[in-house]
């Protein structure tokens, strides 16, 4: 297959919104998402950040202190810690331990394999102690597809870590320790229905592996970073973008995560979502550091958009919190 360079004959995302009589702006901000860096033990082919073992972008201890101070000032309902692999970032225990008392709900996103490598360390126990919700990435239950997407042996390690988390109580009913799975497609196609996929994963994981979990979220692959390069080199870019744009669902727009969220990148700057971090789009007309933010983005403030936004509005919609519409 030849390369598939962009040169698309399709409306921009902002034009598509206008045609539907819609606009995209901030509502009241409920969630602080903290991206602690691109350092990761894996280099998944779907990654919009191009995260990997050679990445040097990680959040410093000073920036973590700024994040904690920001969370204390703004009082968010949810704090969502993501990466890269947050497990690998030095001082992550400081960040988790100091953010946990400041929000009713704290999420920690894990690729499972990074945590498996640190399972005997303090981290799983720390997350348990603070009742942090784990959001675990598990794109496929097929070993071959998982290996192609994330690396050899990934599925086996991920399942072993899920069993370990179950032993700690995560995902077990009545434990109060929540374990969510997040599933994204193994290629250039949209995710399946979230409810149907949850039923299937619950059945297969319990029957074949004895693993339980609380919820399952589906998320679309976003055409940025390493995934975009794969789309282009495999000849899938145009078809995928046409699929995303032709599947635009206006019913998803009121529920887009960027409306109620602010994302802080590893260097402490403010973005409207994690995908905008990857695309280099900051919140507002100028780069803003969290130290200058008294609270969340002002309701009514515009949200920066790009063609990648079609991934969040296609079909049932997509976000870091799963599908957006029935």
């Amino acid at each position: 297959m030849g390369t598939d360079k962009p040169g698309l004959d399709m409306d921009t995302f902002s034009t598509t919104l206008l045609k539907h009589g819609l606009s995209l702006h901030h509502d009241v901000t409920e969630t602080l998402q903290v991206n602690v860096g691109k350092l990761c033990n894996m280099a998944c082919r779907h990654c919009h950040h191009e995260a990997g073992p050679d990445c040097s972008e990680i959040m410093s201890r000073d920036t973590m202190e700024e994040v904690v101070a920001y969370a204390r000032r703004a009082r968010f309902k949810t704090v969502d810690i993501t990466g890269g692999a947050p497990e690998l970032v030095p001082h992550i225990e400081y960040l988790v331990g100091n953010l946990a008392p400041l929000a009713p709900r704290v999420l920690f996103r894990t690729n499972l394999t990074a945590m498996w490598d640190h399972r005997r360390d303090w981290l799983p126990q720390l997350l348990k102690m603070h009742r942090v919700e784990l959001v675990a990435s598990l794109p496929s239950l097929n070993a071959g597809q998982a290996a192609s997407q994330r690396g050899t042996g990934t599925l086996e390690k991920s399942l072993a870590m899920l069993r370990f988390l179950n032993e700690l109580g995560f995902g077990r009913e009545g434990s109060g320790l929540l374990l969510q799975l997040i599933v994204n497609p193994s290629g250039a196609f949209l995710p399946p229905g979230q409810r149907q996929q949850e039923i299937k994963f619950r059945h297969d994981l319990h029957r074949k592996e004895g693993i339980v979990f609380n919820d399952l979220l589906t998320i679309a692959n976003v055409p940025l970073g390493r995934f975009r390069r794969w789309l282009e080199s495999s000849g899938n870019f145009s078809g995928y973008m046409e699929k995303l744009s032709s599947s635009f669902n206006p019913a998803t727009v009121p529920n887009l995560m960027c409306r109620s969220q602010v994302t802080v990148s590893w260097d402490g700057y403010v973005h409207d979502c994690d995908f905008n971090v990857a695309d280099g789009l900051w919140h507002g007309p100028h780069r803003l550091h969290i130290s200058s933010m008294p609270g969340g983005p002002i309701p009514g403030a515009p949200i920066a958009t790009g063609e990648h936004c079609f991934a969040c509005t296609a079909g049932a919609g997509s976000s870091c919190g799963g599908a957006l519409a029935a």
Partner: peptide
């Protein structure tokens, strides 16, 4: 093939 992938089947199935 596309429908199976989009409905959540994997290559093994």
């Amino acid at each position: 093939t596309r429908a199976c992938l989009e409905k959540g089947s994997n290559l093994g199935e």
